[in-house]
Design a binder for these strands. Structure first.
Lengths: 139, 139
DNA sequence: ATGACTGCAAAGACTTTGCATCTTT
DNA sequence: AAAGATGCAAAGTCTTTGCAGTCAT
């Protein structure tokens, strides 16, 4: 038995905020983003709706970065890059995920794969420049 | 200037606990594992050493599962399976990671890749059996 | 009117940290 | 003796939740 879902202005705004960003926002980011136009928005509502969207399959978590869970409105399989310096999460649409691997996992190990995730951790362009500047200053 | 590290019995025990398990333990798991033989061990020490091991490159985080960070003493690139039902994290040594992709990310996007991570989320064998039993009971 | 949605604040879970004490070198 | 490592407990962060009031249907 599923619980009925009603329309809610704030829910719509929350989903819209996620969809309009490619930064893979956190709950806190969404909250700060919407607070000016929705002064009575509460963080609890953001969290509750994030749970709902995930249950619906409308959004997906892309993992926890620096202690905060990050979300993606694009639920098609695609790769990500996570900058370990600034915490940026960036879509890598040009890096293909081998579609056959999920099937291989199911065959070889007998697991049921719901979602593959290919993520690269490292330093983004901006932070590389920043690091270079800092190094030059020290030398 | 680096800070010197001295020998410590507990540090050794913590690393050994991680190395002797293939379950990708959490801080809590390590703590409970060692507590019987080290009654005066504190959770803070476990956390502090986990940070140290990661800085040294001795261990790696494999991400946060059900709110708890999980660690791996095997720092060679290899794939993982995460069961979203029981939280198990399992090595997939037979699922190769395309070694060329990291290079492609660096070339195409100009990022510096330090670590690729290929993870499959789904239901493990044990939980699939469990689910089947539950479904049969309902019907 | 009913049941879903929300704000608010308290509670929870996990992790970090300050300080006094103990260990290693 | 000097500096690192630890225990303990408090504090910090992020997230969840109970309850009373509000809103959609």
């Amino acid at each position: 038995m599923e619980r009925a879902t009603r329309y809610s202005k704030k829910r719509e705004a929350i989903l819209s905020a996620i969809r309009s960003s490619d930064a893979h926002p956190s709950a806190e980011w969404i909250y700060r983003q919407l607070k000016p136009d929705h002064p009575d928005l509460s963080l609890g509502t953001v969290y509750r709706n994030l749970v709902l969207f995930q249950q619906q399959g409308t959004i997906q978590s892309v993992g926890v970065v620096n202690g905060q869970e990050r979300f993606d409105a694009c639920t098609q399989p695609h790769s990500h890059f996570v900058c370990t310096h600034c915490g940026a999460v960036i879509d890598l649409y040009q890096i293909p995920m081998d579609a056959g691997l999920a099937g291989a996992v199911e065959e070889i190990y007998g697991f049921q794969v719901e979602r593959p995730e290919l993520t690269f951790y490292g330093t983004c362009k901006t932070c590389m420049h920043q690091k270079k500047i800092e190094e030059d200053q020290v030398l």
